[in-house]
Amino acid sequence: MTSTSPKTIADWRPRADRLPQTSAFSDFMQETLGLTTRLFIQLKRRPSTLVAGIVQPLMWLLLFGALFQNIPKDLFGTDYGHFLGAGVIVFTAFVGALNAGLPVMFDREFGFLNRLLVAPLASRYSIVAASAIYIIALTLLQVVAIVGLSALLGAGLPGFSGAAIILLVVLLLVVGVTSLSLGLTFALPGHIELIAVIFVANLPLLFASTALAPLSFMPPWLQMIACLNPLSYAIEPIRYLYINPQWQWSSIILHAPWADVSFGAALLVLTGFALVSLVIIQPLLRRRLA
């Protein structure tokens, strides 16, 4: 096929082009890039998602932070707005990732997903990867806004290593929660059910974490739940480095009922959470997508 003359169907020569041999990895990268590009084009053409996504956590920080403005400082170890910042960052990432399944569910309901399912994708994890990359990028923009507002409110700015830890925590949390959300997308019959699950999971997981209050404020049973909640393991490292500029991997950041949890251990828990999430959705991806 030449690009100069043709323009009749007779010039269409099926399978005439010799396509270069490609590896499964480069195929995976190409399809992930294609799928991610689509999500960013959608964002660019519907910027309201981005605007709402940035305004909402700032409202949380501003209004919820002001709610306990006059509480004695020693209760939280710092002023409440400062304390809350880590919770808002993590909760923002969590909500974004939890909602990642929705566009895929709509693709499934409108038949667009069939385009992907009849294509010889190197791995259907490219759908998960594209969603995760998109949510991570979106969350980072939100985090920049939250960190910026926190700084204006007097919380200071995290250093370079602090910023790197925030990035790592967001990445691990988003990969884990996005996987679960996409798993639900393929396990549930439709978007109504998915939205119901998101509604049910959303706020209880926030309340049953250390986002809004420290562990010591909670009754023992809630402490147990909060220490089983992956959100706490994302919130505490960020909070620790916000309040203690000198942090170490061995620094104790959470006093769980069964043991003290160090900075490094919290990140290991988050890594485990991301890996387990990726693995447990595999049968769902295969069943739905095979």
């Binding site: 480069s26 190409q30 399809e31 799928l35 959608q42 294509a119 010889p120």
Partner: peptide, 15 residues
Amino acid sequence: LTGRELLNLQAAIYH
């Protein structure tokens, strides 16, 4: 998406 963007996506998922 525009028609071209859809075809670009199609090209990506067929490598």
